Computed example of a mutant assay.
Amino acid sequence: MSQSNGSSQATKVGYIGLGNAGYPLASTLARAGYHTTVQDADPERAKKFASGHQNSSAATESSDAFKDVDVLVTMLPNGEIVRDVLLGSSGVAKSMKKGAVIVDTSSSSPFHTRETGKMLEEVNTGLTLIDSPVTQEYAWALGKGDATLMVGCSNQSALEIAMPILKTMAKHVFVMGELGAGHAMKTLNNYTSAASIMGLCDALIAGQKFGLDPAQMVDVMNVGTGVNFSTKESFRTDGLTRRFSSGYQLSLLLKDMKIARTLIDKTGPHSALSDLIVDSFADSDKIAGPGADHTQVIQGWEQKAGIQLKQSKAPEE
């Protein structure tokens, strides 16, 4: 997956957004031999990436920085920022060449993504937008080329151009349907995960107050029917250890839950669970403060219960 080949060297890739997810994902492309032009809100981060990876360079600040790329990948905080980067006053879309493909791996509203796709066609009829948000089956999979991608695309030819890029970044690539389908799947995946986090927080607080050890509780769940990503990965290694360094911010999870609630409300009967998740996570986000790791969501439960969960060692310690 990370081997160089002639086709990868011939394909020019742009990458915008080198955060906790973007940096490792872009790294898989550079290692595979793609000439990767990178850009970030922090220019020094882009320069650091370029200096540390062969086949890569830092983009200039000009709107035509990606005029020669075949595929442009974006990994940004939300769909509004993606739209601004592409179509704002300094947007790069106008100068991109005909036939180029834009792959948005950000976590965004599927409805907003479809609107952006239409706007791109109006500005540059030769561009195609694909949504391909990311999830993972184990922590830190992104830098190993083991990501899971959920793809929405309404142009088969564009999908064929992008597919080698997608398969370089990911172990699993699921084509979910038309443009927006990838973002719909991502938000519903995160919604399901968030529901398990709520149940886990309830259980850990109640268990400790009863006299159970939180770490041992999670160990039981991991060999029982309560197992989920949070018990196996983030909460066991970063929540209960109180390292709070999973690499995924609580504010981003809250944003995703608001998107999920909108999607559920627009496509089916209203769900009381979606309101409960959004309200509970919003309370925790205020308590944990700006930049909080998503595992700090437990602090909202701790404050309401008047206790702090017992700190445990990491499983490998």
Rank of each mutant, 00 (worst) to 15 (best):
S271M: 11
Y191L: 14
F66V: 10
E121A: 15
E178N: 12
D146N: 14
P24F: 15
H183A: 13
D256K: 10
I81G: 04
A184Y: 04
D219G: 01
F210C: 01
V218Y: 00
D279H: 06
K304V: 15
A170H: 03
M163L: 14
G177I: 03
D256M: 09
Q308P: 06
I307T: 13
A139R: 14
G177E: 03
L86K: 05
E80D: 10
I205H: 08
D279I: 03
K209Y: 10
D104V: 02
L18W: 11
P110T: 08
T116G: 00
S108T: 13
V103K: 05
G289I: 09
V151Y: 03
Y191I: 01
M1I: 06
F229H: 00
K232C: 05
A139F: 09
M119G: 01
P315W: 03
P77D: 09
S106E: 02
I130L: 12
H183Q: 15
Q303C: 12
S280K: 10
G22P: 13
G22D: 14
K97E: 07
M198D: 09
C153R: 04
K67R: 08
V227F: 05
P24W: 15
N190S: 12
T192W: 03
A139W: 07
I264K: 03
S57F: 11
V92R: 13
S230C: 00
G306R: 09
E316I: 11
P290V: 09
Q296K: 15
H172Y: 11
F66L: 10
A181W: 02
H172W: 02
G143R: 09
M163N: 10
S234F: 05
S132M: 12
T148F: 01
K266N: 12
T116P: 01
N124F: 04
Q9R: 03
A272H: 08
Q3N: 08
T135F: 14
G224K: 06
A272Y: 07
N190P: 13
A147N: 06
E317N: 08
D40R: 09
T37H: 06
L188A: 02
A59L: 10
M176E: 07
P164T: 09
S154M: 08
E122M: 06
L76V: 14
L254P: 02
W301P: 08
P214W: 00
M198L: 15
T116S: 02
I197V: 15
N5T: 05
E122P: 00
D219P: 00
